[in-house]
Design a protein around this nucleic acid. Structure first.
Lengths: 115, 115
DNA sequence: ACAGTTTATAATTATATGCTTATATACGCA
DNA sequence: TGCGTATATAAGCATATAATTATAAACTGT
């Protein structure tokens, strides 16, 4: 008996295409352990704010990430309830932790904390 | 102690981009259990021969598949010795078997066998 | 040597992608 | 209300991608 949950091939290729971009893949890996807001990604990737926003929109459109406004900032987090989260997770597991990026942000005092 | 083998993020996104196409992803899933030659793929995907060849070239360029000429035909197979094969395999595991495609070929007498 | 079959490659084209710049929107604070 | 900050969206543009058609190359069998 085969109990492995499989994922439709069209769907899988759609998800893989989204992950097949270094910026979005790193974003997801980061979001797996830390919430981040847009301005943090701008610092981490040294990329323009609209570019970051557009990547996040793609991830949000297929509901891989959630957003939550807190004051001025919008925090993004990974959507663990996504139908295909196990698939996504099994991919992210193979990637090295991106803690350095976050550590650097903190050193520079650029990490957004707002509780 | 963490013994998980990780894969460089740039490399991972490159591989995922390649898999992020339904034709190539299906090809790899098929090749995981059966060797196939180009003309078989042409039948399975109802796609032109050059289109198939070009997809296979991309998979071959990155060494995910091997080719072997036998007479008129060139058989493609998955390269299990690829450095990142464990990563690829962990993705393909989530996909449904594509046995129907091969079964249909056999029914139509289009399966190439040449031992 | 020649004809038929299989595959690869080159050139072209249409569409997709990812960035840029410009602008709009939403919020916090004085 | 007005200003500064954070984010989203729209438009434009350069490059990448995936198909097509045309052609070349490698092999088989006569």
């Amino acid at each position: 008996m085969n109990t492995t949950v499989t994922i439709d091939l069209q769907r899988a290729s759609q998800l893989l295409k989204l992950l097949g971009d270094p910026t979005r893949l790193t974003m997801l890996k980061l979001l797996k352990s830390h919430e981040c807001c847009v301005c943090e990604f701008v610092e981490i990737f040294k990329m323009s704010q609209p570019a970051i926003s557009q990547h996040l929109r793609k991830l949000r459109d297929i509901k891989l990430v959630k957003e939550e406004r807190r004051g001025q900032w919008i925090f993004f987090s990974i959507n663990e309830n996504h139908e295909n989260y196990p698939f996504i997770q099994s991919i992210l597991e193979h990637l090295p932790e991106q803690n350095e990026s976050i550590a650097e942000l903190e050193e520079q005092g650029l990490r957004v904390c707002c509780q």
